[in-house]
Amino acid sequence: MSHEPIVSLRHVTKRIGRSTIIDNLTFDVPQGEIFGFLGPNGAGKTTTIRMMVGLMSITQGEIIIKGENIKSGFEQAIRHVGAIVENPEMYKYLSGYHNLVHYARMVPGVNKERIDEVISLVKLDKRIHDKVKKYSLGMRQRLGVAQALLHRPSLLILDEPTNGLDPAGIRELRDYLRLLTRTEGITVIVSSHLLSEMELMCDRVAILQQGKLVDVKGIQEFMSSATEQVQTYIIDASPAEQALGALCDMDKVREAKAVPDGLELVAEREHIPEILADLMRLNIRIYKAQPQRQSLEDRFLEMTGGGQNG
């Protein structure tokens, strides 16, 4: 696997009228990763994706996909891309199969075997000859993934892929994307405004805010920087009142209060074992001690200025 980026954005700017929708985006998407676009609604995720697939013109700058400029070499560049932009809207009056035949005809080298292969890949075998209008949302999503994978793209772009999927569907999609990147070396770009999802799915995330790039980071870096910080823990201890009293007396505890789930305490990660040991020494029984997992979200909101846009 080469380490050349599969997608490069260079000073990409999009202006509509006087307003600047996308402002000078520059970053690379490395090969074989799941790369996330993260940002509140209206941050420019979809616009960026639309420019990457040629649905929108680029006012300034350039986007290079596998060495081909999407503007000047559109047909060459787009050959490597499979995408779902927003909802996978299909021809409802056609069967799922004929929808796939339709897209297969548009790229040279996709034969009937490949269509069948993709159908079984997304597990639509039984319903593929039904009309799309009879499909559930989840089935449409899967058909959307199927059309994106038909021509064996090197780059898969999914705009809000988990919209409308149930938790099982999201999990399935996640596992499937992992499989694609691991076994076939496909690079996946996903956009989302849901952090918890991105955290589980992505190797790296680019954070967008009002058309500007805030940061690009590996998800591990994100997580570790979060864990270094002072965190909030929930403790289930008995007797609770005695425990709360003890916690309030400890120097290492910055804050402690009773919450419906138990006791909430704020302290540095390093000090937690000692705090718990102190409690146990006082014959307080501890059933559970759990860090609050909202750290990434907090960090995200911090970076994007409180997430006032949702």
């Binding site: 697939v53 040629g54 649905l55 559109f74 047909e75 060459q76 787009i78 050959r79 891309v81 995408a83 779902i84 932009v85 927003e86 909802n87 996978p88 809207e89 299909m90 021809y91 409802k92 897209y103 548009m106 790229v107 040279p108 059309q147």
Partner: peptide, 14 residues
Amino acid sequence: SGGTIKLLLIRPAS
């Protein structure tokens, strides 16, 4: 109006 244009135009066909 059906939204299918988005999937139609992202193929190697001008």
